[in-house]
């Protein structure tokens, strides 16, 4: 059964997470194959971010099991998952505010790439190059030495991408990458995500901007009250009565239907 490189990179089996009596994530199962881009949608409070917290090891799962790259990571810590190749971009813009942009990305390159038993006292060339490549990918290399606190929101968001990429991940978790951005800014982030997808990176993506999601993802999961209410193609999604009634609304569903037909 198991091969050196399992085709299913991430596998969630009946994963649940409770906050008190409330099930933020309820018996969710799905797989993400190598090279796939899978989208997760659903109303606010559906439990999408909570699901990411559980997958990334920030919150322990109360039930179920999670496998990454063929190994059981259900109780792995965030740093261990990062070393195994799972890198996350947060929904809110976070940064190491006392540092420069480059230092923010060097953190990912130096500490996220692999576990270092001996703490590094010097930065090797490899690490610095990894950081600069990541900065280049998001188009921020020219501003590398600027204090990150002085950068606008878009650049800070892209810096999070860069620090994730600097770990050289097998898979990215993106939590609403274009949330809170104006259309022009959103375009830039979308372009980055598209280029990463074209480069063959496996991506699990939470998104509210449905046009962006249906363009990018061949498979979409919709959550509601912690449960998976739909998994399948985007064409199927716009015709699914439950998804249309609890999330999309008939007008958006119709617009998406025409959008899909046209492209």
């Amino acid at each position: 059964m198991t091969t050196d490189r399992p085709s299913s990179l991430l596998s969630c089996r009946s994963v649940s997470k409770y906050y008190g009596a409330m099930a933020a994530v309820k018996t969710i199962s799905f797989d993400v194959r190598v090279g796939e881009i899978v989208g997760i949608g659903g109303p606010n409070g559906a439990g999408k971010t909570s699901l990411f917290d559980v997958i990334a090891g920030l919150q322990p799962a109360d039930e179920g099991a999670i496998f990454f790259n063929g190994e059981d990571v259900t109780s792995a810590s965030p740093q261990e998952l990062c070393h195994r190749g799972l890198a996350r971009v947060f929904q809110s813009v976070v940064a190491f505010d006392s540092m420069t942009l480059r230092e923010n990305v060097v953190i990912g390159a130096a500490y996220g790439h692999r576990l270092r038993f001996v703490p590094p006292l010097m930065l090797d060339r490899d690490t610095l190059e990894r950081a600069d490549r990541a900065l280049d990918t998001v188009g921020l290399l020219d501003r590398a030495n600027v204090p990150i606190a002085s950068l606008p929101v878009l650049d800070r968001k892209l810096a999070m991408f860069a620090s994730a990429l600097a770990t050289e991940p097998l898979m990215l978790l993106l939590d609403e990458p274009v949330g809170g951005l104006n259309p022009a800014e959103a375009d830039r982030v979308m372009a980055v995500v598209r280029s990463l997808a074209e480069g063959g990176l496996t991506i699990l993506l939470i998104e509210h901007v449905m046009r962006f999601m249906v363009q990018l993802c061949r498979r979409i999961i919709i959550m509601q009250h912690g449960e998976k209410i739909y998994e399948g193609s985007s064409e199927g999604m716009v015709r699914d009565p439950t998804v249309v009634s609890v999330y999309l609304g008939s007008a958006t569903a119709r617009r998406l239907f025409h959008f899909l037909a046209a492209s």
Binding site: L58, A87, F90, V94, D97, S98, M99, Y111, G112, S163
Partner: peptide
């Protein structure tokens, strides 16, 4: 400094 600035972010980047 990374752990000081943002602990969750730092551990998510492998520290």
């Amino acid at each position: 400094k990374a752990l000081r600035d943002n602990t969750v972010y730092a551990i998510s980047r492998g520290i």
